[in-house]
Amino acid sequence: MAGKTIIRFIVLLLLQVLVFNNVDFNSYVYPAFYVYFILLLPFETAGWLLLLSSFLMGLSVDFFTNSLGINAAASTFTAFLRPALFKLLKSKKEYVPGITPGIKDLGFRWFFAYALILIFAHHSVLFFLEIFNFNDALQTIHRIIASSVATIILVLLTQAFFNKKEK
């Protein structure tokens, strides 16, 4: 499990800095796909490890984008929300150790709500920190929504693709 998570860390980091940071979707759309790493950390991940690994993920992305601290802050915030969100989102299944927060173990509706809330929270912090003022709040919100939609589509597609493969 740990090895898989480390590999996922590296792959998502490379995908983010080499692919998603360079693909020109639209000036409003910037999919921070690396959040997928935080989404998929196992349930039994200790609190400190959850926060530190998310912080590290954000910081690594920051190193490549000349925006030191911004992605780190957004990722840490996302990680902080995660345990509370688990309590909030009821699932038919217990969160037993060994299952991962994914469509396969907990169903589409659960995962969709989970991913949507965390991605939206992450992008909100990210884009407001990047602008660092509230003058063009409407434009920033526009940007947050468009990017969140893009990220969640990518996350759901990835989920669908990898679930099929494992069957």
Binding site: L51, F55, L68, G69, I70, A72, A73, T76
Partner: peptide
């Protein structure tokens, strides 16, 4: 409550990084 305090500590670190390197 270490989870909360670690969160605050990391955010403070990130905040200083932002202030020093972006602003």
């Amino acid at each position: 409550n270490y989870f909360f305090f670690l969160f605050v500590a990391l955010e403070v670190v990130a905040y200083f990084l932002i202030i020093n390197n972006n602003f």
